[in-house]
């Protein structure tokens, strides 16, 4: 580790390590966050859910979007449509997208997360919340 030689260097270091505690800080105000859940059961992982989750996490970070909390959930029971991504805007019902590719993920970020408009690929919900 090279020594920190100025306040700017310290701030740069802070910015680069910021994400280590982001997830924890998000925990303090989950109510105000957009929640993205990626199904990460065996079926999801096999279909590339981990890559999608990491891709979305990087993308959000690179774009400086910090009001989104990404977490994994277990099997959503939609194995035929993995990878699945569930987006919940503040105060709204969750929406689930199936067969999410990187391209689709980008679209979800651009349109749904940033502007609140849904995009194609939604799996109609048969039950109220996937939590239950």
């Amino acid at each position: 580790m090279a020594k920190i030689k100025s306040l700017d260097e310290l701030k740069a270091l802070r910015d680069s390590v910021q994400n280590t505690v982001d997830v924890r800080e998000h925990g303090d105000n989950v109510e105000d966050m957009i929640i993205v859940r990626v199904a990460m059961a065996t079926c999801g992982i096999a279909a590339g859910a981990r890559e999608i989750m990491n891709f979305m996490a990087h993308e959000l970070r690179d774009q400086g979007i910090d009001n989104v909390m990404i977490t994994q959930v277990g099997c959503m029971g939609l194995c035929y449509a993995e990878p699945t991504v569930e987006v919940t805007l503040k105060g709204e019902e969750p929406v689930v997208y199936g067969n999410v590719t990187e391209e689709k993920a980008l679209e979800i970020i651009e349109k749904h997360i940033k502007n609140g408009t849904m995009v194609d690929g939604i799996i109609p919900s048969t039950h109220k919340s996937l939590d239950e």
Binding site: S6, L7, L10, R14, V21, R24
Partner: peptide
């Protein structure tokens, strides 16, 4: 109960040593 006390980066991520920097430099 929030940071890993073994890891200085986590303290820095929480604005650690900024106050020292500001004091001695500004």
């Amino acid at each position: 109960g929030f940071v890993d006390p073994h890891n200085i980066d986590e303290y820095i991520a929480r604005d650690g040593y900024q106050a020292l920097g500001q004091s001695i430099l500004e």
